[in-house]
Simulated assay, not measured.
Amino acid sequence: MKAVEPVSVNVELIDERIASVVFRNPSRRHALSAGLLHALDARLAALAEQRVPVVMLGSGVGEDVWSAGHDLGELAEDRDPLAWGKPLEQALRRVRSYPGVVIAMVSGTVWGGAVDLAMSCDLIVADASARFTMTPANIGLPYTTSGLLRLFNNLPIHVLKDMFFCARPLDAAQAERFGVINRLVEREALQASALEMARGIAAKAPLAIQAVKEQLRILEDLQPLPVDAMERIAELRRIACESADMQEGLDAFAQRRAPRFEGR
């Protein structure tokens, strides 16, 4: 019997200015389990302490799935894995606030919360197998305002609605056209292209890049909302997370059947 490869987040220092971070959860299609996300958060925090200016992030080259998104097996105990203090949001904040450049190296399909992870990175290098699909509505999970804003800042509104309402994949060519992917390359050139980009960035002044990244993060987050709007959004999310539809979505996923949603 083949041994199951454990969940891991491994760091390799390519040189003093570039690190490669590879997350793996092979038995779950590299799903973002709480354990994996905590480990990713810790590895990035350690690299920030070491002042490594450039990080390349991925799950490997030549995989069919870059990441299946949030580990749905954990939703039985946590009906809202996207809330502010949860592991996924903590890891996304770590990526966005990392005091250097984080390059997502994407090979294979990207699902749900993993799309948010890739887009939270500063740059994306991908091959033609990359597909970005948002599937929360398939299980009745409402997405967060912060997550929607990250995608809203990167995509035309009707493309974003198509992704969320229809769960239609954004393929690599479309993603490049909309500016989501910075470099679209052949699969065999993916790692070399990401490393070439990383070396170019690493040769620049790190404090200047850090200052620009933080300014851009603050500007991107300047989306003031009235208190009553935030309360209304929170209530809509609470209703959806506690609904029978969400339980039906989780049951249907576990039973590998089409869900029967009733809007309650």
Rank of each mutant, 00 (worst) to 15 (best):
M1F: 11
K2D: 11
A3H: 11
P6E: 10
P6W: 05
V11H: 05
D15W: 09
D15P: 05
V21C: 08
V21E: 00
V22E: 13
R24S: 15
P26N: 03
S33E: 01
G35S: 08
A39N: 09
R43P: 05
L44C: 03
L44Y: 03
E49W: 01
Q50G: 04
Q50C: 05
R51L: 07
V55D: 07
V55L: 05
G58C: 08
G60M: 09
E63Q: 14
E63W: 07
D64E: 15
S67L: 01
H70T: 11
H70N: 11
G73P: 01
E74L: 10
E74S: 10
A76T: 09
D78V: 13
P81D: 10
P81A: 06
A83H: 03
A83T: 06
G85F: 04
G85D: 15
K86S: 08
L88E: 07
E89M: 13
A91I: 05
R94V: 11
R96E: 15
R96L: 09
S97I: 06
Y98L: 04
P99L: 10
P99V: 04
V101G: 07
V102D: 08
I103M: 03
A104Y: 02
S107T: 00
T109Y: 06
W111N: 12
W111T: 10
A114L: 01
A114I: 05
L117S: 03
S120W: 03
D122K: 07
V125L: 04
V125C: 08
A126H: 07
A126N: 00
A130E: 03
A130L: 12
R131E: 13
T133P: 02
M134D: 04
T135L: 14
A137R: 14
N138G: 10
I139E: 01
L141C: 02
P142L: 09
P142H: 09
T144D: 08
T144A: 12
T144V: 02
G147L: 03
L148M: 13
L151N: 07
F152D: 14
N153Q: 13
N154M: 13
L155Y: 02
P156C: 06
H158L: 12
H158D: 15
C166V: 10
A167L: 01
P169Y: 09
L170A: 06
L170K: 05
A173N: 11
A173L: 13
V180A: 12
V180K: 00
I181H: 06
R183I: 07
E186H: 13
E188M: 07
E188Y: 04
A189C: 10
A189M: 10
A194P: 05
E196Q: 15
M197E: 10
A198W: 03
G200C: 07
I201P: 02
A205M: 09
L207S: 14
A208D: 13
A208N: 07
I209C: 01
E214L: 14
Q215K: 13
R217I: 04
I218G: 01
L219W: 11
L219H: 11
E220F: 02
E220R: 14
L222G: 00
Q223G: 04
P224K: 02
V227Q: 12
V227P: 08
V227R: 14
D228A: 14
A229L: 15
M230Y: 02
E231K: 14
R232V: 04
I233C: 07
I233E: 12
E235R: 15
A240W: 06
A244Q: 13
E248C: 09
E248A: 03
E248G: 07
D251Q: 15
P259A: 06
R260N: 11
F261D: 00
R264E: 12
